[in-house]
Every structure is written in C-alpha cells, then in structure tokens.
Design a protein around this nucleic acid. Structure first.
Lengths: 104, 104
DNA sequence: TTGACATTTCGAAAATTATAGATATAAGAA
DNA sequence: TTCTTATATCTATAATTTTCGAAATGTCAA
C-alpha cells in the first residue's frame, strides 16, 4: 500500500467522484453486460464508456484516471469481450481508512 | 473538510513524515519551549526549525509544507514568543478516516 | 480479412506543484 | 534603537500533472 500514490490518486475531484459512483454502480450507471444477457458476474464493474459519459471528460482522460486509480490499488479491472469493467477494491480502501485512523 | 485539499497535502512523503513525527512529538523532537522553563502548555506543538532539522529540506520548503498541512486542516499552529508551534489536528484526521471508511 | 466499436497509449501544450534562495516581518535581547 | 533569531513570503526555475486529440491495439462480427 503506497500511501503517497493513493493520496495522489484521491487528489482530483473527478477521480473521487468515480470512486463514489462505483460505490453504488447499479444506481449510478446503466445496466452493464455484453451482447446477449450477462454470461459472467461483473461484480458491479462498469465499463469505461459508461464512466466517461457520466464524468464528462474525454475518453483518454478517463482511461488515464482509471489507470491511476487502479495503479494505486483503489480499483480493479476485468476485461470481458470488448469491454473493461472497473470496480472498487473495497479491501484496500478499508485498509487505507485504517491506516489513516491508526498510523497516520 | 475539503477532501481534495487533504489528499493533496498527503501526497508528499515529507509532509506525511511530518504528520507521523508529530504523532509522537516527545519521542521525535528535542524538548520545546521558550527561554526559561515552559510558561504555557505547548500541547505537543513543535517549532518550525525543529521540524526543518529533522526533515532536511530547506526552511522555506518546510514552512511552505506546514502551511499546506495547516490549510488542509491537518495541523494547527500556535505562536509563542518567537516560535510557531505546530501540532496535529486529531479531530480532523479522525473525521477524514471516517470519511474514507464510510463515504469514499 | 475487413470493419466497427472499446479501450489504451502516445505526444504535446497548459496548468500546477516542488523547491530553494533572497527578502520581509515579527519578537525578544542588548 | 539596533542586533539576532524564528518564521513567513516572494520570486524564479525545475519537475510533475492535467488534459486532449491522434494513433495504436484488442476484440468481435460480417
């Protein structure tokens, strides 16, 4: 857990929003899933274009943001067919909260 | 509580160290206090030059860091005689930890 | 294999942050 | 008042981050 990297990832309003939106993916994004039905469990993961549509910035910016959040460990991604689904890494987020509470 | 501002303040190794050192000011810094004895309770506050000596960066950089941490609400300062004593704002730090745990 | 998306990566310009030396201010001591 | 010490602010440069459009890559469908 690299605290500086996590703090940098959190120091941007849009990235913070993405994390918050992904806390309630079914409320905040349209239904996800490939062509016909949903063969796999996406575990609340949301594809890049849905996030881009909601965030408003350019696709390359959002893709970059998602990489920053993933590199910090706050998000994980899973690719299915053409789409990359991003979801929160709740374990690391709670670990980080504990760090702030006890070690910071 | 401005989350982005707090995150920015935390996204630097030296600033993070300052916060950690101030968690145990009596272990990490030489005795503080004015000329003769200690007329006021410094509440664990540490003067800028002590922090500068430990951190190693220039005085202006450290003074700037302390301002950034204070503006984010993570530190508070109190001036006595020639010295400005900085100490942690435990309330805000715990509030921030709770935010990460519950809202982020 | 070509075409049509979805996403990532690249390259560049603009904005912000980092850092320190020089200067200014504040407060006691001589 | 003047000197010394502590801290803050100003100014400038280097480094990093932001942000986007363009180009590249990956994946399926025709």
């Amino acid at each position: 857990m690299d605290i500086v990297e996590i703090a940098k990832a959190l120091s941007n309003e849009t990235r913070l929003n993405i994390l918050r939106w992904l806390k309630e993916p079914y409320e905040n994004f349209p239904p996800q899933g490939g062509s016909l039905g949903t063969p796999v469990d996406l575990r609340g993961g949301v594809c890049v274009s849905s996030i881009q549509a909601k965030a408003g910035a350019s696709l390359s910016t959002i893709s970059n943001y998602l990489t920053i959040l993933q590199d910090a460990g706050l998000l994980v991604s899973e690719r299915h067919e053409k789409w990359t689904y991003y979801r929160r890494n709740e374990e690391l987020i709670q670990e980080f909260a504990k760090f702030i509470k006890n070690e910071l």
